[in-house]
Design a protein around this nucleic acid. Structure first.
Lengths: 261, 261
DNA sequence: CAGTGGTCTAGACCACTGC
DNA sequence: CAGTGGTCTAGACCACTGT
């Protein structure tokens, strides 16, 4: 039986701790200690019911707890498995440096190739829109904007949703309006328009994904996301682009350098 | 009845969408549209059972879904409420600039006062320890380290856990070994020792809190945390401190500036 | 005390997976 | 097909809250 060797202990019904929590504790311990490895199957509900002598809802609550913690994922008809963690990608603070654009590569591609992953983009959409307040307060200029949305894939798996907002006065009549903006990406096109980029400000927050984000990024309930709002400024201090990004929280590590002076 | 005006629609039992999800959808809609505001009470289980004509486990599943999404919190014996979001504190990228230390203030105090919040520190502990690998790989020097742990409070609520690791050769015999390290905090004391700070590197990740973190930061299940590992370098490029920080994810916004060149 | 959510039982039927 | 998890019912007893 699968439970052999994994679930040593019995349940203490007289304990203050709820039975389903005690079961969850034992499974969690098995995962965190490595007795159950990534991708391995947990005991089935039927096995847990038999082993502990409890009702089905009780073992389901235990499993639910592990799913909420992001430790396990259920697959209908197959079983419950220890969640696999994607390799973490480190985003260094020089990732938008001009030298990366000089190679003709947009930032996401350059980053991915640096770690030997294949990169992809899909779901590209380009529209003129009325920007939400979080965007317009950063762009300052109160004019029409072009929104470029896309989803980024790493090794075929979606990891990032991004929408760039660019003042229409900059974007109109350029390749920014086309799905493929050409070598160096949209930042290169913005510089073509005479707006030399000087600096970026990134505002990072974290939260649980909305339902839509969870669907698009294929996230289970225990995975938070980064929300990253990046504003690009040109030499005159004008905000020339705001990019609103949702990133799978377990797939990235954001690295920044701060001067001490 | 409380449900009046909040739950307009009925359930479609013939729908593909599970009944508990339809109920969750309606409650979520009420929250996101603002019909139910922060801190307001959701209809009780009994009211939902009566309104929809379903079993108790079904409405509990619906509420569980909202709790997992971080939209609602249950209080035993009182009810289920729309989750309150704390005011977000923006941490700017110049928060460790020397001018802030010149005022005799440590970083956390200076930040808090900037937004009119009262700041506090408790649970201070200082030990010589063997650092975990994530720390030692950043300090490089393979020598004993002093660990300074503390918890930060904002307006009386815990928001941040931090542990600083400093090579013992720098810390020994200084106020770094004392609970109160004196004006300007430990960075000022490190500079007193002749290590002028040049730059910091911050590695930011996000995940759900461990059980211990949730307890210490008083977090409900739907709140992720930031994990921030900051390494401080002196003018010679030596890592003189590594600070491992867990921050309540809904209480902070991290802001960074990146050069474009 | 009445009202609330927390835990648990013992069933039922369904949909999906893999052999 | 057997085995798996997903949904749902209809109860029970408990612990906590506020009056």
């Amino acid at each position: 039986m699968v439970t052999k060797g994994i679930l040593i202990d019995r349940i203490d019904p007289s304990s203050d701790r709820a039975v389903f929590r005690q079961i969850a504790d034992q499974l969690r311990q098995a995962i965190e200690s490595g007795r159950l490895r990534e991708g391995e199957k947990l005991p089935s509900e039927a096995e847990l019911i038999e082993h502990y002598g409890v009702a089905r809802m009780t073992v389901r609550q235990a499993i639910q707890e592990l799913r909420n913690e992001g430790l396990a994922v259920a697959e209908h008809g197959r079983g419950v498995f220890v969640r696999r963690r994607p390799p973490v990608k480190r985003l260094a603070s020089d990732r938008f440096a001009r030298r990366h654009r000089k190679d003709g590569k947009a930032a996401f591609l350059a980053e991915s190739e640096a770690v030997g992953a294949t990169a992809g983009v899909d779901m590209i959409a380009i529209n003129e829109v009325q920007p939400p307040e979080e965007i317009s307060e950063r762009l300052l200029a109160n004019e029409p904007v072009v929104a470029r949305s896309r989803r980024y894939l790493r090794d075929g798996h979606p990891v990032e949703l991004a929408t760039s907002y660019i003042p229409a006065s900059i974007a109109r009549g350029t390749k920014i309006m086309e799905p493929n903006p050409g070598p160096g990406g949209i930042y290169a096109r913005i510089e073509d328009q005479g707006h030399t980029l000087e600096r970026f400000v990134e505002d990072v927050s974290t939260r649980l994904p909305t339902r839509d984000e969870a669907k698009l990024l294929n996230l289970t309930s225990g995975t938070p996301v980064f929300r990253l709002i990046r504003t690009a400024y040109d030499l005159e201090g004008m905000a020339v682009e705001v990019c609103d990004t949702i990133m799978s929280g377990d797939a990235f590590l954001l690295s920044y350098e701060l001067p001490a002076h």
